[in-house]
Amino acid sequence: MAGNPRFEQKIVRAVLWTMTGATILILLFIVAFILRRGLPEVSLEFLTRNPENMGVEGGIFPTIVGTLALTLMAIVIATPLGVGTAIYLTEYTWENRLTRIIRFGADCLAGIPSILFGLFGFILFVTKLKLGWSILSGGLTLSFMILPTIIRTSEEAIRSVPAAYREVSASLGCTKWQTVTRVVLPSALPGITTGVILSIGRSIGETAAVIFTAGSSLHIPTSLFSSSRTMAVHFYILAREGISMPNAYGTAAVLVATILMINIVSYYLMHRFTRKYS
């Protein structure tokens, strides 16, 4: 395509602008759709009361607790495992067959549909290990599901820390572990946090993997062995069984707001932590 570079510039700008605009529009449309239908249902009572009559009436308090418990559990298990694996892959071994296998495995794991994680979790945790439908089973299953994301994003983040930092650290008499904890991880923190936030988003909205492993009890969970229903599962059941569309949208609105809040808080914390010297 020969021709006028300024004209080309204009076309490209217009096309890219449209694409960006479309992305934002789609997002806004979905969020607006849910909030418009859901927000009128949300009240203090809706947030703090137990559901009654299968969720036709009452609030969604237990599902909020269940969602937060499961997500927290998944993150608490998967983050150290994932970051640890990433540290091993980047700092403690050279590229070899094993690292390629681990990486390939993580990538495959990331592509497995969540319902298969649910089935696997059901068989392993719920029945074989006799943990039953519980926060524990669900949290473990979710942690497996998000592990690849955490590994790969952490690995990228750690790799992008300049090699010079490692050399300087070593030349100042740091052991490898000191280099990792004092120089590499602080610099990689923003990238690692991004991976964790993505994973929180995935866990919090997950239904298939959770319904098989944490069950769908509407009681407030009292221990790690309690069965629990998450907001996403609650929404799914309310809508799917035609129990109450208004309450389904109300739940969805709370879910969206929760995800938004977690993202905002995480980014805020991360910036507070890293802004200082960069």
Partner: peptide, 13 residues
């Protein structure tokens, strides 16, 4: 002690 070609201050004070 080693000083490198490109100065590399760590991202600290």
């Amino acid at each position: 002690g080693m000083v490198f070609a490109i100065p590399v201050p760590l991202p600290r004070s």
